[in-house]
Amino acid sequence: MATAFLRTVILYFLIMAGLRLMGKRQIGELEPSELVLTMMLSDLATVPMQDFGIPLLSGVIPILTLLSLSMLLSQLSLRSVRLRRVLCGSPTVLIDRGKLRQDAMRKNRFTLDELLEELRAQGVCDLKDVKYAVLENSGQLSVLPWPSAQPPAARDLGVSPEDGVSLPVILINDGRLITQNLQRCGRDLKWLRAQLKRQGLSDHRQVFLMTVDEQGKTVCIPKEASE
């Protein structure tokens, strides 16, 4: 039992380290080479995890080899555009200046139903509104509408709004006070107690979420009473 636990922990952290090297991506955003690597790593880790007759190194060495090869190819692809195109492919224009490229769709086995579904997901219901549609290497469809079909921006309307966008900082997370965030915002416990008092609260453990942004706007959500 202890051997199974130890082997599982070692392989788990090894696979997690490998996935971290691939960057923060969702499954749908992986390049083909990254997706193949992920599948192979999971298979290699499963065998020594279940069969104790196989030495642990028999699973660790192939995993380290694949990770090293992936890092090497990543470095080489940064220096060679041709190699990058071979490993990752290149984006394909499916709609070019409003014209549907049927040959490109057939080459990528991208059906018309899939195209219309992707367009609807991005709020486009009419093909005539699309100037460019690009099928990216990750399989995502980038849609660029014609200027006449785009919603007007503030500068188009002659409006100069103030910069009201700021990133809120979490001060209390499910009753837990994040002291370092409080200090980073230039606030102290006295200020925090005053904010809680305004909400009719006496302790930070009564707060589910509390944030403050660069403009000093505070959002405080008390905990709901448990049934």
Score class of each variant (00 low, 15 high):
7 R>M: 05
10 I>W: 01
12 Y>M: 12
14 L>P: 05
16 M>I: 15
20 R>F: 05
22 M>P: 06
25 R>L: 09
25 R>T: 08
27 I>A: 14
31 E>D: 11
33 S>K: 09
36 V>A: 13
37 L>Y: 01
39 M>N: 07
41 L>H: 01
42 S>M: 13
44 L>E: 03
45 A>V: 03
45 A>D: 02
45 A>C: 08
46 T>I: 10
46 T>R: 12
47 V>D: 10
49 M>C: 14
52 F>Q: 14
52 F>K: 08
55 P>R: 07
58 S>L: 00
58 S>V: 00
59 G>S: 10
60 V>W: 08
61 I>C: 04
65 T>I: 13
67 L>R: 02
68 S>C: 11
73 L>K: 01
75 Q>C: 10
75 Q>T: 01
79 R>M: 07
83 L>F: 13
86 V>E: 01
87 L>V: 14
95 I>F: 05
97 R>D: 14
101 R>A: 12
104 A>K: 02
104 A>M: 06
119 L>I: 10
121 A>I: 09
126 D>L: 05
128 K>Q: 14
129 D>K: 12
131 K>H: 12
132 Y>W: 14
134 V>Y: 04
135 L>S: 00
135 L>Y: 05
139 G>Y: 07
140 Q>N: 12
142 S>L: 08
142 S>H: 01
144 L>D: 07
144 L>W: 10
145 P>Y: 03
146 W>P: 03
148 S>Q: 15
150 Q>S: 14
152 P>W: 08
152 P>D: 08
153 A>T: 15
155 R>E: 15
160 S>D: 14
161 P>A: 10
163 D>T: 06
168 P>S: 10
169 V>D: 02
172 I>F: 04
174 D>N: 15
175 G>T: 06
175 G>E: 04
178 I>W: 03
178 I>T: 01
180 Q>V: 04
180 Q>H: 13
181 N>E: 11
187 R>L: 15
188 D>P: 02
190 K>W: 00
190 K>L: 09
193 R>Q: 15
194 A>F: 04
196 L>I: 05
197 K>I: 00
197 K>N: 12
199 Q>P: 00
200 G>P: 03
200 G>T: 05
200 G>L: 04
200 G>A: 07
200 G>M: 06
204 H>S: 12
204 H>N: 05
205 R>I: 01
205 R>D: 10
210 M>S: 02
212 V>N: 02
213 D>V: 04
213 D>A: 02
214 E>C: 03
215 Q>I: 00
216 G>L: 10
219 V>T: 15
219 V>C: 13
227 E>C: 11
